[in-house]
Every structure is written in C-alpha cells, then in structure tokens.
Design a protein around this nucleic acid. Structure first.
Lengths: 207, 207
DNA sequence: AAATATACTTAACGGTGTTAAGGAGCTTCC
DNA sequence: GGAAGCTCCTTAACACCGTTAAGTATATTT
C-alpha cells in the first residue's frame, strides 16, 4: 500500500520541478521577464498546473527566493564557524552578504527591492526560521559579540544591527541597479569602504 | 501669425497634462499599477496619444521622476545656503535625502530600485544637469568641505561620497520596502544612526 | 478648391496573471 | 462488475497590459 506515498513523492517531485524551472528562468531573465506560461512551457505542463502547487506567481517566486537565501545561510554558518577576531568575523559576514546579493541579483531584487504583494502575510517575514531572518540573526549575534568584547560602543544592538544591514543593503542594491554612466569607484572598494566606515563609526574611543 | 505659437503652447500644455496625470496616478498606485490606458482615461484622450509625446512608458515615467527629483535639488540648495558647520550641513543633507525618498516612495523606487530598461541611454544618467546628478554633486561638495576643514580623514572623496550615498540609499530603500513583521527600530532612529555612524567612521583621530 | 500637414482615434497584435469548467484515469465501494 | 467519487491536469476564457499600423477629421497652405 505504498501507492499513497508514491503519489505524494510524485507531487513533491513536480513541485520541485516547477521551482527549479522557475529559478532557472528567474536567474537568466529576472522577475518581470519570467511568466507563468514560460515556466509551464519549460516543464511541459499547462500553465494552470502551477496554480495547483502555488497560490500565485508571487508565492512561487517567494519560494524560489527562500531556496536561494537558504544558501546565504549556509555561507554565513561557515563564516560563523571560522575562528577570529569578532570584528573580523562581522566584517567577513557583511562582505559575504553583499557578494551573495551581487551573485544573485534577481533573487535579491525580488526579495528586498520589490513592493510586498498585496497578500501581505506578515508572519512569513517575522518567522524566525525563514532564511532571511536567520541571516539577520547571524548579524545580530556578531554585533553582540563585538559589544561583549568591548569593540563596539554600547548602544542598542538592535539599532546597530539594522544600521549595518541598511549599509550593506545600500551597497548591494545600488550595485545591482548600477546606474549606467555614473562614475562608479570599484565594486570591492565600495563594499569595503562601507563595511570599514560603519565598523569604525561604531567603535568606542571617539565621540 | 501667433497661431504657430499657440499650437506649440497647446502641445506643451497637453504634454504637461500627461505628465501630471501620470505623476498623480504614480504617487497613488506605484509603477506597476499605473498603465498607459489609465493615464489616458484620466486626461480623456486615447492611450495612443501619449505615444505622440513620449517614446514609451519608461520614458514617460522617467520624466515624471525627473520632475520630482528636481524638487529634491531645491531642498538641497536651500540646505546649502544655510550657514553651519560642514559636518552639520552634510548631515542635514543626508537626512533630507532619506526623508525625501520616504515622502516619494514610488518615484524613488522607479528611479533607484528598478532595473534600467533595455534602452539604456547611458548619457541620461551621466548627464551632469540631471536632477539626480545635481543631488550627488551636492553630496560631493559637502564631502569636499568636510575634508578641507579637516573634519574627514583624507581618503578618496569620490569613494566617500559614494559610500555615504549607499548608506542613505540603504536606509531609504529598506524603509520603503519595509518588510512587514520585521521588528524595526524607529524610522528616525535608523536614519540618524546611519548618518551619525558613517560620519563618525569618516572622522579622523581613530584607527 | 485641392493638396498637405497636424492631431488624434480605432482596431489590432501578442503578451500577461488568473479562474472556471471539464475531462481523463485511478480508487473505492455497493 | 459497474457506478460513484476523487485526483490531476487541460482547455478556454476573462480582463488586463504596452505598443503599433492604419485611418479620420480638422486646419493650414498653395
């Protein structure tokens, strides 16, 4: 009587196939250029089949992005395991965040640069198990480490974490859009300038 | 023989009416919810008429955004005229930038958070007379002031300007998206934390 | 009065996300 | 064994979208 299980497996398989097809198109073409019909074509099912597995396009792409951001989590975990100065570990994490964003520009854009769709399931974002939240928790821990070590001034660690996030997000999103014709300094230069400047500004000893 | 002039005036008038209608819809509904047809409805012309005045939707909305960002320029000019400490003037400008973005979220998003449309007229952005570039020039001048006054460490002022921009852009765009459910600290707190931290990090005397 | 130019419209193309209704094929039950 | 029901998927359609080609009415020029 393993029939039920096989069917369940098959359902799960197709679901994953949809996710994979969507992700691949998404990476290549970006949010506005991947349509439900094109995804359907790719997996050789009718477009409406996708709706049996995902509520709508927004949910599908949200899942795709979650899969991707889970990989960021892995990167950060690896950094967390490395030994080192709390400041250095924080900096490494921040730089890794930007690089990850630049390597997955479409996923990054869909996640952090698009308006929340109307069905604003607040829980999704608040959910502490979501990859995004886990990434932020990594940052928060690094901030606590730095404070515990006396390497940061003692101010609200939540505020500090959000400031750092906003900083690296600023670099990431600006470089993703990358207004052409603008006389940019080098990418790495800008990333490190942001990280170093913020960390310096948070350090004790001055004003 | 003022007929030609009258006609030219009328053309200009309709062009402006299209811009105004687009801007109003844009403010209320955001990029993806303002369609050429809805703009046309609003001014009681057929949709195709718009194409006699603007190449496509991207150009129309770009013009709308330019009009809006020209207002940011005015705000910054006013700040530039105020007396004060170079650091204070810089900070005021940075804070004004974020507030402006938060007051015009859809325009801000269209300008700095959307992929450049395919017709990537590089000159448009590079053009030093564009409102965006003028705003950046304001920032650049403030940075030079701070350096000349010895209030900033002497590093590449271009890099510093871009770092500051990325910082305020990060706060602005994050607050515009404003992932619901996330335990944000206060808006003003975050803005000032970013500005103060960056400025502190750029100040001489440490590290 | 005829020809031309201007300003606008109608109709259409090819695309989009999404839903309602229907149809095969398998499972269950009388 | 056959009827009923359930699962999974498809076809067809709706209501939009940006954009273009072709046509029309009005005003200007010749």
């Amino acid at each position: 009587m393993g029939v039920k299980e096989r069917k369940a497996r098959q359902k799960k398989f197709l679901r994953q196939e949809i996710l994979d097809a969507a992700s691949e198109l998404f990476v290549k073409e970006g949010y506005e250029n991947v349509s439900m019909r094109r995804i359907a074509d790719k997996i050789e099912y009718s477009p409406t089949t996708i709706y049996l597995y995902f509520k709508d396009k927004a949910e599908l792409l949200e899942q795709v992005c979650q899969e991707t951001f889970a990989r960021l989590g892995q990167v950060l975990v690896r950094i967390e395991e490395l030994p080192g100065d709390p400041i250095e570990r924080l900096k490494r994490g921040l730089v890794a965040y930007v690089k990850f964003g630049l390597e997955n520009p479409h996923h990054y854009r869909a996640t952090f640069m698009m308006p929340i769709p109307e069905g604003f399931d607040e829980e999704k974002y608040a959910n502490p198990d979501s990859p995004g939240m886990q990434a932020f928790d990594f940052l928060r821990r690094r901030v606590y480490d730095c404070m515990a070590d006396g390497r940061f001034r003692k101010v609200d660690p939540e505020l500090v974490s959000q400031t750092l996030w906003a900083g690296v997000h600023g670099v990431t999103s600006l470089l993703i859009i990358h207004c052409k014709g603008f006389p940019w300094v080098g990418t790495d230069q800008l990333i490190h300038s942001m990280v170093d400047t913020l960390v310096a500004g948070l350090s004790p000893g001055k004003v």
